[in-house]
Design a protein around this nucleic acid. Sequence first.
DNA 1: TGATGGATCGCCT
DNA 2: GGCGATCCATCAG
Length: 178
Amino acid sequence: MTFDQPAPDLACALIGATMTVRGCAGLITETEAYTPDDPASHSYPGRTNRNASMFGPAGHAYVYRIYGLHWCLNVVGAPGHAVLIRALEPIAGLADMESRRGRQPLTQGPGMLAQALGVTGADDGRPFGPPDFHITPGAPRGIVTGPRIGITRATDRPWRFGLAGSRFLSKPFPAASG
DNA sequence: TGATGGATCGCCT
DNA sequence: GGCGATCCATCAG
């Protein structure tokens, strides 16, 4: 998998890939793209201490805290580009995920999946690579697109990507296209 | 030095 | 369908 590419391209490529984190694995079903010239992106104001990982090597993790209580996991692409992992279809380590989450659903939302996988700020900047923290490409899949969720800027950019027909999405897509 | 917003989730009605 | 929880990097002065 080539990580060093613009976020929208990487976000598309990650749909259908398998993510493994310390024994827990899932099929990536939903992503969002964030670029340096995107007002909704953390990299938009330039490099800071908080978003340093977004400007680091491709194929590393960018993990940040949102609303003071949830963690969100991103995959870094080209410098200043990142892809938010929003949902997974659980494949392995279900018992671990359930014990960490304590409720259903397990991985249908960025905060949920970070909790289920045990991802925290301690994983910020960690490189993806086998065996404990890695991503393996999947077969090409049908992809749907739509506007991103929960942002207040640049809401017109159709940079939310989903696995067509998947039941494991944080929210339905407005229309099946793309 | 102090105020504020945010790529969310879970509980309430 | 609506709102409270909870923290720190950023921005203004």
